[in-house]
């Protein structure tokens, strides 16, 4: 442990933190999959409304994606901007 400087330790911890931040991707994945499944069921019931259902699904998925993107922003900042020096 003697040959690790404080700076290197901070970078290593930042990388681990970025990895942990990306766990936020689990939630949007579940949400988007659920929305897509429901949309598929809706198209099966009513094929005539396919275009309406598709646009609604895309809008809902984009909103559900937001929380995952917050995690991504944190991870990118930790990895590349290096706020802790």
């Amino acid at each position: 442990m003697d040959n690790i400087t404080g700076q290197e330790f901070i970078y290593a911890m930042s990388a681990i933190g970025a990895g942990i931040a990306m766990i936020a991707g689990v939630g949007p994945g579940i949400g988007q999959g659920y929305a897509a499944g429901q949309a598929a069921a809706a198209v099966g019931r009513n094929p005539g409304a396919k275009s309406d259902i598709t646009s609604t699904m895309l809008l809902g998925q984009a909103v559900a994606e937001t929380t995952g993107l917050y995690g991504l922003a944190v991870a990118i900042i930790l990895m590349f901007v290096k706020p802790f020096k």
Partner: peptide, 28 residues
């Protein structure tokens, strides 16, 4: 240090890495 936090708050300065320091800025 204070530069880093400022840049973290303003993400458009992803370029910050190439402007300051230079010692640890690998050019992606």
């Amino acid at each position: 240090m204070e530069n880093g936090i400022l840049y973290a708050g303003y993400m458009s300065s992803m370029c910050a890495a190439s402007t300051n320091a230079g010692s640890d800025s690998e050019d992606f």
